[in-house]
Design a protein around this nucleic acid. Structure first.
Length: 1002
DNA sequence: TAATTTGACTTTTTT
DNA sequence: AGTCAAATTA
C-alpha cells in the first residue's frame, strides 16, 4: 500500500485545501490548466485513505469516456492495488446503465434491455413521421425530444402545456409513438438511461444507501436530469465534490445548464467554493490572448488566471489564401517547428490540429498525407457505425432481442436474399394490424400457417434468415452449453458466409473491412465466461446490499447484453497508440475536433479555419458558446499556438475572420507571422519541462530546412495568392524564397543574379545572405519586389466587388457549380449557353454528344474574350503526351500497395482521378466482369474496365474533363471514388470498450 | 418484383 | 463516403 501522505505531493496550497477539505459540499472552480483532474483524483485518493471510504461506495461521474478512463488511470497510479477498478467510476451513462442492469427490475424494466443509439432512434422517428405523414424534419423532432427529456419532461408534460399549435400536437404524437415503440422493442435511448436511473433512485433510494461520496468532473456540462442524479446519488451521504469551469461549457447543445453551478450553491447553502487560479500549462502570451477572447463575453463574472511560466512569442494569427494553402502552410510549419527545436524536443505527438467540425479535416489530411507526416484523426466515423460492423451487431442484437423490429428490418435482406421492399411491407402491415412482433410472424410464416402469405420463393429466403437467428438463439439459451458473444459472432459470420459476402460487396477494400470484423471479434472475446476465468467477479457489479434484491442474471444472456451495451456506450473513436514492429510507439500528429480535445493539452496547437461561419458556426445559435469553444481550443496549447484563416473558400467565396479574433484587444496579443522558434528553444523546453537541446543540434537541424522562417512569399501575410496572376513563377518570389535557404548556395546565387537582372538592382552576394546579414539582404529583395507593379496585386475585396454583381445561387451542387461558373461567363453575351442540358453532360456515355454541343456553343461566342479566357483556364497544364497513362494510373498502383492495413494512403484517389480526367472519355462497351485490383493495375493503361463498361481514355477536350471530374457516377464506375478517409482503415480507427478483467483479490 | 444503376445532395459538436 | 429516390435492367 502506498504512503498516504504522498497524496499531497506536488500540489499547491489551493489544490491542497480542495483535496483535504472536510466540507460536505465542495465546488472547485478550475480554469484551464489549473490541475483540475489532478485535484479531483487526489481528492478521491484522500477520501479513500484518510476518510476510510470504501472504493465501491464512491461514485465518480464524468461526461466523456476519455476523461473517465484518464481518471481511472491516474487514480490507479496514485493508489494502485487495483482499487480503482472497484470505484463506481464512469460516464453518467455507463454508471446509470450499471444501476439499471442491477436494479432495473425494481421499476419494471425488461431484463437485458438494449440501448437505442442515435441512428436507431433517428430511424424510428423518421418512420413515425413518414407513417403519420407529418412534415416535421425528423432530425429536428429527435433533437427536440432529446432536449425535452434532458429537461426532465415527458410528453404528457408537454401535452399539458398551453401552446396548442398543430406542430406542437404533432410533436407530442410523434414522441408518444416513439416512446411506445422503444418500449415494445425493449430499448432505452441515451436520455432514457439517465431518466430511468433517476426514476429508480427516486423510488428506491435504498439502492444508494451505501454511497459515501459523489464526485463529478466538468460539472458545468450537467443537464437537469444529471443534476437530479447527483442529488439522488448523494441522498444519504450528502457529500458532493464538483469540479468545473463555466468558461469551458461547450455542451449547451446537449442541454447542459451552466446554471447548475449556481443552483448547487442555492440548494446546498453550505457549499464551499474554491478557486484554482494558477495555470501550469500555457505560456503567458497564450493565456493573455485566450483571456481577451473569453472576456468579450461581458455577462461573465471576472476571473483571474495566473501564469506560472516564462514567456515565449505571441500566438500567431496567420492569414492564408485558401484552405489548401492553409493546409500546406501548417504542414510546413510543423516541419519547421520540429527542426527549429533540434528535431528532438518536439515529436509529432506534440502537435495537435483542432478543428470546429470534422469535415474540415479533409484538406489537412491530404496535405499531411502528401508530406508524409503521420497523423491520427480523433472523431469522425465511429467504429461500429461502419456497415460491416453494424450488420453483425444487428444480427447479435436480434438474437438477443427478437422484439427489435427495426434491427430485423435492417438485416432481413442483408446480405441480399431476395426479400424486397414489397415483402417487407407485407410483414410490416401484418404486424401493425395484428399487433404481433415481426419475429413471431416470421416464425409462423416459415411454418405451415403462413399468416403473412408471402410467395413460396420468398418464404424460402425467409427460412434462411429464420434459421440463422433461431439456431443462434438456441445456442445462446442452451442451459448446458451456452454460447458467449465471441462464439455467437463467429456463428453468425459462418452462417452468413460473411467473408465471402464482403469480398463480393467490397472488392476494393475488402481487406480493411474484414480487418474491422476481426477487430470486433477481438472486442467480443473480452466478454463472457471461459472455463479458466468465470465472470463471478465482474467489476461492473454493484455491491450487494442487504435489503435490495439485484436482478438475477443468466450468464450467457448477461454477457451478451453487456457486450452490446458497452459497445453502444463506447462510441468514442479514440485511437490507441499504435506500435511498429519493434514495439515502439508511433508518433503521430493529432487532428481532432475541439469538442473531443477538451481536457487535453499539447505543446503546439493549430486552430485552422477561424473564419466566421466556422467559429462561430453558421448553424449555431449560441454565440457565447462558440466563443467558449474557441477559448477551450486556445487553452489547449502549452508553448506555441497558431490560428489560421483562409481568405477564400473552395468556390472562391470570401471568408471573413472570426469576430472573436477581429477585435483590437485580441489582435494586440497576436502576431501575423510565425515566430522564428529556434531562438526560443530554451523557453519552450522550460514550459514543457523537457531537456533543452544544444545550440549545435538546433543549428544543424535548421540547416536542412528549405526555409528557416515563415515563408511569406509562398504564403503572403495578407492572405493573397503567392504567385503571379497567370500562375507562372515569379523569379523574384523564388529568389526571395531561396534567400531563406541557408544551404542551397548555388541556386541562391543564381536566383539572386536573376532577380538583379529583373530589377536592375544589384544585391548583396549570396555569402552575405547566407549568414549574419541574410535578413538585410531579404529586406532588399522585398523592397525590390514591392517596386514592381504586378506585385501589388488586387486585394481580395476588389475582386469580390466585381464578382458580387452576379450573385451565385447557393442551390447548385458542386458539379454544377463548376459548370455554372463556366457558363455564366458567356451568359451575358450568348444566352443560348443556358440551354445546355447539364445532367446529360454528366453522364459519361453522353460525353460525346455533349462535346459537340459545347463546341457548337464555343463557335458563336469565339469573339467573347471572357469565354475563351475561361476555356483556357481549364486547359490542362500538363498535356497528355507529357503525362502518360502509366503515370496517371500511379494512384491505382499506390492504392493497391497501400491497401495493406497499417500503411497510409498518401496520394488521394481524387488526385489520381484528376490526373485521368485531363483526358477525355470517349467510348464505352458492354458489360465485362469487374476486374480485381491486381488485374486492373495490369490493364493496358489506356482503358479501364468496370462493372458496366470499358472506358477508353484519349487525350483531348478539356471542357469535358471539367464536367466528368465531378461526376459521382463516373467515379463510382471507375472504382475510384473520392479519397477514402484514411482513418477508415482498420489500423487507425480502433474503438475501445471497457475491458473486463478479473479484479485482484482484496 | 428484386436488384442495380444513376443523379442529387450532404458533412457541428457527443453519450 | 455515405443516403435517398427515381429510373433501368434482369
Amino acid at each position: 500500500m502506498m504512503d498516504a501522505s504522498r497524496i499531497l505531493e506536488g500540489l499547491n496550497e489551493a489544490q491542497k485545501s480542495a483535496v483535504t477539505s472536510d466540507t460536505a459540499v465542495l465546488q472547485i472552480l478550475a480554469p484551464p490548466g489549473s490541475g483540475k483532474t489532478k485535484t479531483l483524483t487526489s481528492r478521491v485518493s484522500w477520501l479513500l485513505f484518510h476518510k476510510g471510504y470504501k472504493p465501491w461506495n464512491v461514485v465518480c461521474l464524468t461526461f466523456t469516456i476519455k476523461s473517465a478512463r484518464e481518471m481511472k488511470e491516474r487514480i490507479a497510479k496514485q493508489i494502485g492495488q487495483g482499487l480503482e477498478a472497484r470505484l463506481v467510476l464512469g460516464t453518467f451513462h455507463s454508471v446509470c446503465l450499471r444501476y439499471l442492469r442491477s436494479y432495473g427490475h425494481l421499476i419494471g424494466l425488461p431484463k437485458n434491455f438494449d440501448i437505442a443509439e442515435t441512428s436507431d432512434s433517428q430511424a424510428i422517428v423518421k418512420r413515425i413521421i413518414k407513417q403519420k405523414q407529418f412534415l416535421i424534419d425528423p432530425a429536428t423532432a429527435r433533437s427536440r425530444i432529446s432536449h425535452c427529456k434532458s429537461k426532465n419532461k415527458n410528453y404528457l408534460d408537454v401535452q399539458r402545456e398551453q401552446k396548442k399549435s398543430v406542430e406542437q400536437q404533432e410533436f407530442v404524437v410523434i414522441w408518444e409513438a416513439y416512446q411506445t415503440h422503444l418500449e415494445a422493442a425493449k430499448l432505452l435511448d441515451y436520455d432514457d438511461l439517465l431518466i430511468k436511473c433517476a426514476e429508480l433512485l427516486r423510488s428506491n433510494p435504498r439502492c444508494v444507501s451505501n454511497v459515501e461520496a459523489v464526485l463529478i468532473d466538468e460539472f458545468q456540462d450537467t443537464n437537469n436530469v444529471q443534476f437530479e442524479l447527483v442529488q439522488l446519488f448523494s441522498r444519504y451521504c450528502k457529500r458532493i465534490t464538483t469540479v468545473g469551469d463555466p468558461d469551458q461549457s461547450i455542451y449547451g447543445w446537449r442541454s447542459a445548464e451552466i446554471e447548475n453551478l449556481k443552483r448547487m450553491q442555492r440548494i446546498y447553502p453550505e457549499t464551499l467554493v474554491l478557486n484554482l487560479e494558477n495555470n501550469y500549462r500555457s505560456s503567458p502570451q497564450i493565456l493573455k490572448a485566450a483571456q481577451m477572447v473569453i472576456e468579450q463575453d461581458e455577462s461573465r463574472p471576472a476571473k483571474t488566471m495566473v501564469a506560472t511560466h516564462k514567456g515565449v512569442s505571441s500566438p500567431v494569427l496567420r492569414l492564408l489564401h485558401s484552405p489548401k494553402a492553409q493546409a500546406s502552410w501548417i504542414v510546413t510549419e510543423i516541419k519547421r517547428c520540429r527542426a527549429a527545436t533540434g528535431n528532438g524536443l518536439l515529436d509529432y505527438t506534440d502537435f495537435a490540429i483542432l478543428i470546429r467540425s470534422a469535415s474540415l479535416s479533409r484538406q489537412i489530411e491530404t496535405a499531411m498525407g502528401n508530406a508524409g507526416i503521420p497523423y491520427r484523426m480523433v472523431g469522425g466515423l465511429r467504429f461500429f457505425d461502419r456497415k460491416e460492423i453494424k450488420v453483425l451487431l444487428d444480427y447479435v442484437r436480434v438474437v438477443n432481442h427478437p422484439e427489435n423490429n427495426d434491427a430485423i428490418a435492417r438485416i432481413i435482406n442483408y446480405p441480399p436474399r431476395g426479400i424486397g421492399e414489397k415483402s417487407i411491407k407485407m410483414i410490416q402491415d401484418k404486424g401493425a394490424s395484428s399487433g404481433r412482433l415481426w419475429w413471431e410472424l416470421i416464425v409462423d410464416e416459415v411454418g405451415p400457417k403462413k399468416p403473412v402469405g408471402l410467395k413460396d420463393n420468398i418464404t424460402k429466403s425467409l427460412r434462411v434468415f429464420h434459421n440463422i437467428i433461431a439456431t443462434c438463439r438456441e445456442a445462446v439459451s442452451s442451459r448446458s452449453d451456452p454460447v458467449y458473444p465471441l462464439e455467437l459472432l463467429e456463428l453468425v459470420i459462418k452462417k452468413l458466409n460473411f467473408e465471402d459476402h464482403l469480398k463480393k460487396e467490397y472488392p476494393e477494400d475488402y481487406e480493411q473491412r474484414w480487418a474491422n470484423v476481426e477487430e470486433l471479434k477481438l472486442q467480443a472475446s473480452e466478454y463472457g465466461v471461459t472455463e479458466t476465468e468465470p465472470m463471478y467477479e465482474d467489476p461492473d457489479a454493484l455491491p450487494q446490499l442487504d435489503d435490495v434484491e439485484q436482478t438475477s442474471t443468466d450468464l450467457a444472456q448477461a454477457a451478451l447484453s453487456k457486450f452490446l451495451g458497452n459497445i453502444a456506450l463506447s462510441t468514442e473513436l479514440q485511437s490507441e497508440q499504435e506500435c511498429d514492429e519493434q514495439g515502439k510507439i508511433l508518433s503521430k500528429v493529432t487532428i481532432s475536433t475541439i469538442h473531443a480535445a477538451k481536457g487535453l493539452e499539447w505543446p503546439v496547437v493549430f486552430i485552422p479555419s477561424v473564419y466566421k461561419g466556422s467559429i462561430p458556426h453558421s448553424r449555431s445559435d449560441d454565440e457565447d458558446e462558440e466563443r467558449r469553444l474557441l477559448y477551450v481550443a486556445m487553452t489547449r496549447a502549452q508553448a506555441l499556438l497558431y490560428m489560421t484563416c483562409p481568405s477564400q473558400g473552395q468556390m472562391s467565396e470570401d471568408y471573413v475572420l472570426s469576430p472573436f479574433l477581429d477585435e483590437r484587444n485580441v489582435r494586440r496579443c497576436l502576431t501575423n507571422r510565425a515566430p522564428s522558434v529556434y531562438d526560443q528553444v530554451q523557453e519552450i523546453s522550460s514550459i514543457l519541462r523537457r531537456e533543452c537541446p544544444s545550440a549545435k543540434i538546433v543549428s544543424e537541424a535548421i540547416t536542412a530546412l528549405t526555409c528557416i522562417e515563415d515563408d511569406d512569399v509562398t504564403w503572403p501575410l495578407n492572405g493573397s495568392k503567392g504567385a503571379w496572376k497567370d500562375g507562372s513563377e515569379n523569379p523574384l518570389c523564388s529568389a526571395y524564397a531561396l534567400t531563406q535557404n541557408r544551404c542551397a548556395r548555388d541556386s541562391t546565387e543564381k536566383a539572386i543574379s536573376a532577380a538583379s537582372a529583373v530589377t536592375g538592382n544589384p544585391m548583396g552576394s549570396s555569402s552575405a545572405i547566407i549568414q549574419p546579414n541574410f535578413v538585410s539582404a531579404t529586406t532588399q529583395l522585398k523592397r525590390a519586389l514591392s517596386t514592381q507593379e504586378e506585385w501589388q496585386r488586387p486585394r481580395p475585396e476588389q475582386k469580390a466587388a466585381g464578382a458580387s454583381k452576379r450573385p451565385r445561387s447557393n442551390k447548385v451542387s458542386s458539379g454544377q457549380r463548376t459548370l455554372g461558373l463556366f457558363f455564366k461567363k458567356i451568359d451575358s453575351d450568348s444566352p443560348q449557353a443556358t440551354e445546355l442540358d447539364l445532367p446529360a453532360i454528366r453522364t459519361p456515355v453522353n460525353c460525346e454528344l455533349a462535346r459537340t454541343k459545347v463546341q457548337s456553343l464555343v463557335e458563336p461566342s469565339a469573339r467573347n474574350p471572357d469565354f475563351t479566357d475561361s476555356l483556357s483556364l481549364y486547359e490542362p497544364r500538363i498535356t497528355a503526351d507529357r503525362l502518360p497513362m502509366a503515370e496517371a494510373s500511379r494512384g491505382l498502383i499506390n492504392r493497391r500497395v497501400c491497401a495493406k492495413p497499417g500503411l497510409q494512403r498518401h496520394k488521394s484517389t481524387m488526385d489520381e482521378f484528376n490526373d485521368k480526367s485531363r483526358h477525355h472519355l470517349v467510348s464505352s462497351s458492354p458489360t465485362k466482369p469487374e476486374p480485381n485490383t491486381a488485374e486492373r493495375a495490369s490493364l493496358p493503361a489506356e482503358s479501364i474496365t468496370t462493372k458496366s463498361a470499358t472506358y477508353t481514355v484519349t487525350s483531348q477536350q478539356t471542357t469535358m474533363s471539367i464536367m466528368s471530374q465531378q461526376s459521382t457516377t463516373m467515379r463510382r464506375n471507375l472504382g475510384i471514388g473520392r479519397a477514402l478517409k484514411p482513418w477508415n482503415s482498420a489500423s487507425s480507427g480502433r474503438f475501445s470498450v471497457p475491458k473486463i478483467s478479473k479484479p485482484p483479490a482484496s
